[in-house]
């Protein structure tokens, strides 16, 4: 059985994979959002997702270590490592203390931040391309959407880290920084103002403006909700 899904939140992905296993479908393969499942005894496996350091799969050391602990590496995809363990071999948790959980989520957040910045860069590039070739416009929307999704995932991870730090009794520095979405919105607003100078088709101008305004609104909300903590 094959299912197509896109996840940015690894906790949700784990939950889904474990629900599938509970129903008798064990995930065996992943390729670009396409999950392959095989039949298994309901609840035979427990899944977990780890985050590696390099794009080229996991180190020999890591593989051996997991094998020794009866953990199977089902699939690596970029930095994502999908692992499973036979439920009969006991409970399966990867990070069991606050310090290592903070480290784990910090690693995820930093990578999401890089991805968001790259998307922002692509977005601006595409915007410029659209000036000359209006047919590229759907791509702009898609990249803009992806950028928002990644930013949202980064903020959520940030909140998880803040909660963990609070649990540890560490004083969480309340961020007074404006949300990156706000900055992105302002930038895009500048781009769309620049568009006015050119002879750009009307629908493109309007959509640019709408996206810029949405980003700014989202950015303002996010800035406030972050600083409320």
């Amino acid at each position: 059985m094959k299912t197509f899904r896109l996840y940015w939140d690894k906790d949700k992905e784990i939950k889904w994979l474990n629900e599938m296993a509970e129903q008798g479908y064990a995930m065996t393969h992943f390729f670009a959002g396409l999950y392959t499942f095989e039949k298994c005894t309901p609840g035979e496996y427990t899944y977990q997702i780890d985050f590696g350091d390099k794009f080229s799969g996991v180190s020999h050391n890591y593989r051996e270590f997991m094998k020794e602990n009866n953990i199977e590496i089902v699939q690596t995809w970029g930095l994502w490592i999908i692992l499973r363990k036979k439920s009969a071999d006991g409970p399966f948790l990867l990070y069991t203390d606050i310090d290592s959980s903070i480290e784990h989520y910090t690693k995820i957040r930093n990578k999401l931040k890089i991805a968001a910045i790259l998307e922002l860069f692509c977005f601006i590039m595409e915007c410029i391309v659209t000036l000359y070739n209006p047919y590229m416009f759907p791509l702009v929307l898609l990249i803009g959407y992806l950028m928002l999704v990644i930013m949202n995932a980064a903020f959520k991870t940030n909140r998880i880290i803040a909660d963990l730090k609070e649990q540890k009794g560490e004083k969480v520095a309340v961020s007074k920084n404006p949300s990156p979405a706000l900055i992105a919105g302002l930038l895009l607003n500048a781009v769309s103002c620049g568009l006015m100078a050119f002879d750009t088709p009307e629908p493109i101008k309007i959509t640019f403006h709408i996206v810029a305004i949405l980003l700014m609104i989202y950015g303002i909300i996010d800035t406030f909700s972050k600083n409320k903590v």
Binding site: Y62, F65, L94, T96, D97
Partner: peptide
């Protein structure tokens, strides 16, 4: 001691209170 041995010993010493996750132990090592 090896990885799995460490997990088991810590679990025994603490009567099951501290069960090290594989990710936690790998990172710590």
């Amino acid at each position: 001691n090896h990885g799995y041995g460490i997990i088991q010993e810590v679990e025994q010493l603490t009567n099951g209170r501290v069960v090290l996750g594989a990710g936690t132990l790998y990172g710590a090592i």
